[in-house]
Design a protein around this nucleic acid. Sequence first.
DNA 1: GGTGTGACCAGCT
DNA 2: AAGCTGGCCACAC
Length: 112
Amino acid sequence: MNPHKADSFFQKVYEVVRRVPRGRVTTYGAIAAYLGSKGSARMVGWAMNHSHKTDPDIPAHRVVNRNGVLTGKHHFGTHRMMQQLLENEGVVVISDKVRHFDALFWDPGKAR
DNA sequence: GGTGTGACCAGCT
DNA sequence: AAGCTGGCCACAC
């Protein structure tokens, strides 16, 4: 009802990503679905691409694809950066995949 | 204002 | 089984 710039899709994505607890991960699809656009998971990834420009404090490394694979690792400063950050939070990453992804998955819809 | 693109997802061949 | 296509929607040129 009040299409302000602050309410743009990107901004909502950032807000959700910020809510992801430390040591947890979520997926593009989950965020997209939470925002009401289930099929627009690509938009989420795109939002992340500009996240470092708009809000550099966004923990984009906590966002992975539905396989738990660090698809966006290549977009960080260095490829190891994303894995480094995750492991630094206690998330084990093997072959660019999050171990125990099922248990570490954080659903924004179920979160408080 | 149309076209292209994109850190995805699911389905079809 | 593995690869390709379409769909989805917002943003940049």
